[in-house]
Design a binder for these strands. Sequence first.
DNA 1: GGAACAGTCAAGTGGTGACTTAAGTTTTTT
DNA 2: AAAAAACTTAAGTCACCACTTGACTGTTCC
Lengths: 134, 134
Amino acid sequence: MLNRFDIDDTLRALAEPTRRAIVDRLARGPASVSDLAAPFDMSLAAVVQHLQVLEECGIVASEKVGRVRTCRLEPGGLKRLGDWVAERRLLAERRLDRLGELLAGALPEEQRRPAAKDARPKRKKTSTQSKKEK
Amino acid sequence: MLNRFDIDDTLRALAEPTRRAIVDRLARGPASVSDLAAPFDMSLAAVVQHLQVLEECGIVASEKVGRVRTCRLEPGGLKRLGDWVAERRLLAERRLDRLGELLAGALPEEQRRPAAKDARPKRKKTSTQSKKEK
DNA sequence: GGAACAGTCAAGTGGTGACTTAAGTTTTTT
DNA sequence: AAAAAACTTAAGTCACCACTTGACTGTTCC
């Protein structure tokens, strides 16, 4: 229920320099829409649109009082992204750890193939292996 | 150095479901281009293009041996994003802490950070340009 | 040698999203 | 009451980007 925000929206929101600059500004404290718009060389309407995007994915919250809308960072927004990143890093790192143990453990110095699913006959062709990347 | 990658590319790369799915797959271990492409209902060329994007921002690395290109996660890629997020979260949270202390009135003034500068201008007397010069 | 495999390259297309301007609303100031 | 401030909404434009197709290169298998 509380997770009506998904990571896709979050990442798309932050994949934009202007919106990231807004986040940077808001990390230092709340601000009005006009304050947020001031540094940018674009229309106020454009900044409002950016704010809508940030709000729809839960990174920013705002509240209107009188004619002024005050925006602030919503802590949960960045947390969700941080968690997403941490998850993947952990997964990949643990995999590497296991691989390391495997390598340290029981391997002769024989040339090792990357965890082949099926054993393929190593027809070693000693000739030039052109590794042109790119 | 190794920091020719910037956060903009990283975030734009991950702001795309297919590329995130590729990252998820690679978090479980290396895979060939065809392996990566298999789950998707799109051309191989499209997947290759996604991989190029992921590689250009340092999230994925790959190496070609024979006719097979094997891709893997580059740990630094996700780390940089994690750091970026953590920075902002920390900034925002510390601000909230200071605010909380301030409200509680529990601090002798000499221990306080000069937070006054941080207080937002309630009113900008110089209501200069509501319209930009452009 | 030739077929199948694994990927690469280039050009083209459609949709999305970041802007614009222009007109409207609500609140505050004078 | 009128004007100004601070947004808000809508409609339109344009560039970019995800994806396609098709032709091509290099490698492995029979």
